[in-house]
Design a protein around this nucleic acid. Structure first.
Lengths: 103, 103
DNA sequence: GCCTTGGTCAAGCATGGACTTGAGTATTGG
DNA sequence: CCAATACTCAAGTCCATGCTTGACCAAGGC
């Protein structure tokens, strides 16, 4: 959908056309895209036309960059720990309870 | 869990301890981690001990790097298209049907 | 006027993932 | 020998997502 919109604005119908989905489903997608600021829409008569919002895409880009940085940090940390020689003697820290994800 | 394992091998019990989850749930996590090659486990008596598999982590890292590259490519492409002046005259390509994701 | 078109809304269904429960098994300390 | 421990396994629950359906409504077009 975003790809299609990057080639110029389109109505909901047009967005739905190539997509093996009901119109309603597409509308839902459009709604979340609008709420998250990636696109803007405007209703003219009975037609709602959608276009990308460049500013919003910048936000999206920033989001992804952050995400990426986070993963990089994790991997680096992990890499460091793996590079270290394994601690042969048991010296287990007593479970700090910081924000921590599972798996 | 991976974080914990990066500080040295541990039994399933130990992994479960700080995790507000049943043992069985942890075992499930351990299974997928093992299947995807991130950890290796060995059963000694009634205890299954788990350790990270450095090689497996390399695989995981490669996976993430690929993923990242993919997103970068997408964003770049999108950025390019946005940078272009909007095509004012209607010159809509007739919907090529290549592999394409929704939204 | 009235049927068609493009969209809207609410409800509901299907699926998948993460977790729990409960029953069972093998090891092990006493 | 017995009970506790450390799992294992199958089944079932819960919940979020993504989509469909059907009723509805406001433009158009003829």
């Amino acid at each position: 959908m975003v790809e299609r919109l990057s080639r110029g604005p389109a109505s909901v119908k047009e967005l739905a056309a190539p997509l093996a989905m009901s119109l309603a489903a597409v509308v839902q997608h459009v709604q979340v895209l609008e709420q998250s600021g990636v696109i803007r829409t405007e209703k003219v008569g009975r037609v709602r036309s959608c276009r990308l919002d460049p500013a919003g895409l910048n936000v999206a880009e920033r989001w992804i960059v952050e995400r990426r940085a986070l993963w990089e940090r994790r991997l680096d940390r992990l890499g460091d720990l793996l590079a270290e020689p394994e601690p042969s003697s048991e010296q287990r820290a007593p479970d700090r309870n910081t924000t921590e994800e599972q798996s």
